[in-house]
């Protein structure tokens, strides 16, 4: 990978949540994100996919410092965002904006749509009027008619609210947009409109995107590179073509098999079994965290945490099935 094309580099970032009793002693720990590294290329989309509790949303919040990381680095324009503070951080963070899942709680119900979109500009010192002028422009870009700008979020449908949330993310002219399950709450016909909007805006505004979703098909549609996570760990990273053509990790394979296809002649789940449930993140299994559900689990999986190794060009996987000497795929 070419370094000059990297816009954001996350390395070895980790976060453990601790719950404490009234004496301040740690009673339990949840390792939500464990040693995750990735690179976001300029004007590309990096997809993160995984089930609930895999740490994908925590990871997004760590990058933006909505949650403080325990360790690691987030390099953006030669600065480590995690080490910055004050004005410097505020300035750089303007370039990275987020769109959240729930458009019902992410907009301020007591502000008009226009003010909702203008608000980030006001916070950053733009005058009331200039802010509103810019907000009008962005509302238009996401397809909200000018006549609706003075309405309140309550009067809009979920799909339209999400458009407003996208306009608000764009108004600061970010370089990077993080979409955290941004289309998951929408109905399919509305979801398609929102996905196309992301595509258009990405081209129009030259955005780099981190696209987080639990939906494999949505991630495939949107991404150039895909990272699969399980219980806070990265299990596989590859270009979208590679990972969908040939998933290596047993979890990625299971995830693909679990996702119903739209092919009416082929019912995939007949005879399907991925036994067991997600283990409690309070007490993750030793070694590989997937081993308790893995049909290929071996002794060594319980003892050693597998490292990410390269199995193809830019295709890495964390699984003991694939040794350095043996990158041939073993089918399930």
């Amino acid at each position: 990978m070419d370094d000059s094309n990297t816009i954001l580099e996350v390395s070895h970032i980790s976060k453990t949540f601790r719950s404490k009793n009234i004496f301040g002693r740690t009673t339990s720990e949840v390792s939500a994100v464990n040693d995750v590294s990735f690179r976001l290329q300029k004007q590309r989309t990096f997809g993160i996919v995984g089930e609930s509790g895999c740490g994908k949303s925590t990871l997004a919040r760590l990058v933006l410092r909505l949650i403080e990381a325990d360790g690691g680095r987030v390099m953006y324009q030669g600065h480590n965002l995690l080490a910055l503070g004050g004005e410097e951080l505020r300035k750089l963070r303007r370039d990275i904006q987020m769109v959240f899942q729930d458009p019902f709680s992410s907009l301020n119900p007591s502000m008009t749509l226009l003010d909702n979109v203008a608000f980030p500009l006001w916070v950053n010192g733009t005058s009331k009027q200039d802010g509103r002028i810019a907000a009008h422009r962005y509302l238009e870009a996401v397809g909200i008619p000018r006549s609706s700008a003075e309405r309140y979020p309550q009067s809009l449908s979920g799909g339209q609210r999400q458009r407003v949330a996208i306009a608000r993310a764009l108004v600061l002219e970010p370089k990077i947009v993080i979409a955290d399950e941004a289309v998951s709450a929408l109905d399919k016909s509305i979801q398609a409109q929102a996905l196309n909007l992301f595509h258009e805006l990405q081209q129009d505004f030259r955005l780099s995107m981190i696209f987080i979703s639990h939906d494999l098909h949505v991630v495939e549609l949107m991404s150039d590179t895909v990272m699969v996570m399980y219980l806070g760990m990265v299990v596989e990273v590859a270009s979208v073509e590679d990972v969908y053509a040939q998933p290596y990790h047993p979890y990625t394979q299971a995830l693909f098999k679990s996702t119903p296809s739209m092919d009416v002649t082929h019912k995939k789940l007949d005879g399907f079994k991925l036994s067991g449930e997600l283990p409690s993140p309070l007490n993750p299994p030793s070694g590989c965290r997937f081993r308790t559900r893995c049909p290929m689990a071996m002794e060594t999986c319980a003892e050693h945490m597998p490292e990410l190794i390269e199995v193809g060009d830019g295709h890495t996987v964390a699984c003991h099935l694939y040794g350095e000497a043996d990158v041939a795929r073993r089918a399930i």
């Binding site: 399919k188 016909s189 979801q191 398609a192 996905l195 595509h199 939906d215 098909h217 949505v218 495939e220 549609l221 979208v240 969908y244 296809s261 739209m262």
Partner: peptide, 9 residues
């Protein structure tokens, strides 16, 4: 309108 395997863009 539904994303599915093999669909891009």
């Amino acid at each position: 309108a539904t994303p599915q395997k093999g669909k891009r863009g």
